[in-house]
């Protein structure tokens, strides 16, 4: 992930937000979607993505479904009810964080 230290803390929020907008997604699809949305600025490595997905799954925020696609098994992730609620909280937290950082870095825009 580029600028990894700055983005690292927001990885779960990014995943939750994407899953909130899509019914279900698989790992590679998430990495490509992020790359596309950020025009290549943010590249999530599988080393960062999958542990985050598994952590969210263990916390009960994501549900998993395995399907056979293109001659192989594919693991899809989707939000649980708790995950949907947590997404709202996480996005609010992130918005608050951005606002605070803006007040610090560029007070005129805050």
């Amino acid at each position: 992930m580029s600028n990894s230290k700055l983005y690292k803390g927001s990885l779960t929020t990014i995943i939750l937000k994407l899953l909130n907008e899509n019914d279900k997604m698989y790992g590679y699809e998430i990495t490509q979607k992020v790359k596309e949305l950020t025009k290549g600025e943010l590249k999530i490595t599988e080393g960062a993505l999958y542990p985050a997905l598994h952590k969210l799954e263990a916390e009960g925020l994501l549900d998993v479904e395995v399907a056979k696609v293109d001659n192989r098994l594919r693991k899809y992730y989707k939000l649980t009810e708790t995950g949907t609620k947590e997404t709202v909280n996480k996005l609010e937290e992130l918005a608050e964080y951005i606002k605070t950082m803006q007040a610090l870095v560029n007070p005129k825009l805050a």
Partner: peptide, 20 residues
């Protein structure tokens, strides 16, 4: 990176057991 990911996956499995 893939082999390192394998270790991360195993850690995730342990964490999942611990949390459950």
């Amino acid at each position: 990176q893939l082999l390192n990911d394998n270790k991360q996956f195993l850690k995730s499995a342990d964490k999942k057991i611990g949390k459950t």
